[in-house]
Design a protein around this nucleic acid. Structure first.
Length: 443
RNA sequence: GCCCCGAUAGUGUAGCGGCCUAUCAUACAGGCCUGUCGAGCCUGUGACACGGGUUCAAAUCCCGUUCGGGGCGCCA
């Protein structure tokens, strides 16, 4: 059957003005339209057939009648997920459930899908995430999955709009670097002609150099790479990071930029997409600022009251984060982390055992880490020694502190984690188009 | 790096020593059907990850391999 269809080719492609499915409701009954998209399903009754056609704005029923069309027989054999173009009449008095349909006049078959599909787009049986990711091109045809990335796009647009309004400059720093950013051994090694190089784990050092350059406020949206052998639902080896750094501000101001950026972007996106989000089972609530704040020490006391046995300097386990999430719900800051737990560039507080640092949590997941940074050259050198780092590896960075470096602060926000948590997804792989994890390198 | 768990048609599953010539759903193929909308009805195709072992007998038990899932550590 497929062979039979393949013989009718497809080199004839009539360009007509295309209407998106979601725009059909604006048109009058009886309008002549052309819609293009994927055949989501067919229901066939010999001389009458119904096609549910899908584009990235929605679905519409197309009714095809044998006696009203010249290529009905070809169409009758169409497979699910084939791509077609339909010229027909809009019927807004349809008895179909949507109350609207297209009565087909001429239909062009543009691409025929093989059968059976490796993954059903609307099948009633669910598929494992692994199967879905192996067939991601099909998985992303599901409207609820497409919507994740439309949501992410709008969210990021909102953040960019906010940052631009605040006079931040969007920058792009190298992802191939000579040395470890933060001294860890968790980088991917790459060949760089006759030298060794690494994929950058964070734009941190470059953001700070630009502060010394007088850019004043910078942000970057880009990939970050971590060669950690994680195996969890919230870790990836390549993820998208939104990084910000600003001169002459402290950790408190950095937190304000963060909560304002997120709440502006979320609220704007909810305004735009609320009904579609709800229809697809996503419940995103509008945000109010400021977000709650709790110090590391107060959080530790609270957790110990709840039966944990934490000492100063212990990180919060997933169990601890779940307990905190029950108390706070949504976004909240944990501030004042112990110096031993933070990278070398983190500015100490007046009590030097704690730092002017913060994490932003969304429920039980950390989405942002930030701090005021050290700007004093001597203090930075001391910290290299304290953290056991070889300062020779950081010469390109350290140099920027010798010739005029303002006080500054910033943060890094995990976009995939943010989207995952806002939409209530179970796995960060679902909010990543083509995730790279411990074992997955393809697609 | 450590610890658990899993692998049966395209997809998702039942079966857990002999009732297996392997269940069910969905998908797929063929047929009937001019208003379906989870379309319906009839017919059909299609699977025990790989290698070794135990046993009269292995989808089922054991060992190894490969692939996958989850938790921890760590982090965004």
């Amino acid at each position: 059957m497929i062979k039979k269809l393949k013989n009718l080719i497809i080199d004839k492609y009539t360009i007509r003005m295309r209407t998106y499915i979601s725009d059909l409701k604006e048109l009058d009954d009886g309008a002549q339209v052309t819609i293009k998209g994927w055949v989501q399903e067919t229901r066939k009754i010999k001389n009458l057939m119904f096609i549910i056609l899908r584009d990235n704005t929605g679905t519409i029923q197309v009714t095809a009648k044998k006696d009203k069309m010249n290529n009905y027989d070809q169409l009758y054999d169409i497979t699910r997920e084939s791509v077609i173009s339909i010229y027909g009449t809009l019927n807004k008095k349809s008895i179909s459930k949507a109350g609207m349909e297209i009565l087909g006049i001429e239909i062009e078959i543009l691409s025929i899908a093989e059968t059976p599909l490796p993954l059903g787009v609307i099948d009633r049986v669910s598929a494992d995430l692994d199967t879905r990711l192996n067939n991601r091109f099909l998985d992303l045809r599901k409207p609820e999955n497409l919507l994740i990335f439309q949501f992410e796009s709008q969210l990021l647009f909102g953040i960019r709009e906010f940052m631009n309004r605040e006079n931040f400059i969007e920058v792009h720093t190298p992802k191939i670097v000579a040395a470890a950013t933060e001294g860890g051994a968790d980088l991917f090694k790459v060949e760089y002609f006759e030298k060794n190089a690494y994929l950058n784990q964070s734009p941190q050092l470059y953001k700070e150099i630009l502060i010394s350059s007088g850019f004043d406020k910078v942000f970057e949206v880009g990939p970050a790479f971590r060669a950690e052998k994680e195996n969890t639902v919230r870790h990836l080896n390549e993820f998208t990071s939104i990084d910000m750094e600003a001169a002459f501000i402290d950790d408190k101001k950095a937190m304000e930029y963060l909560e304002e950026a997120i709440s502006y972007a979320v609220n704007r996106t909810v305004d735009l997409m609320q009904s579609r989000l709800e229809k697809n089972g996503y419940n995103v609530k509008k945000l109010e600022t400021p977000f709650p704040r709790i110090t590391y020490e107060k959080a530790m006391e609270y957790l110990n009251k709840k039966g944990l046995k934490l000492n100063f300097g212990d990180d919060f386990s997933p169990e601890a984060n779940k307990i905190l999430a029950e108390k706070f719900l949504g976004f909240y800051f944990i501030t004042g982390w112990p110096a031993d737990m933070r990278p070398f560039y983190t500015h100490p507080d007046t009590n030097p055992s704690i730092t002017k640092s913060f994490d932003l949590q969304l429920n039980d997941i950390e989405v942002t880490s930030g701090a005021q940074r050290i700007h004093n050259y001597k203090m930075l050198e001391d910290n290299f020694i304290k953290k056991g780092l070889n300062k020779n590896n950081f010469e390109f960075y350290e140099k920027a502190f010798k010739y005029g470096m303002p006080p500054h602060a910033g943060w890094g926000l995990g976009l995939d984690r943010l989207v995952m948590n806002l939409l209530g997804l179970n796995n960060v792989r679902e909010s990543t188009l083509f995730p790279r994890d411990r074992t997955r390198l393809s697609p």
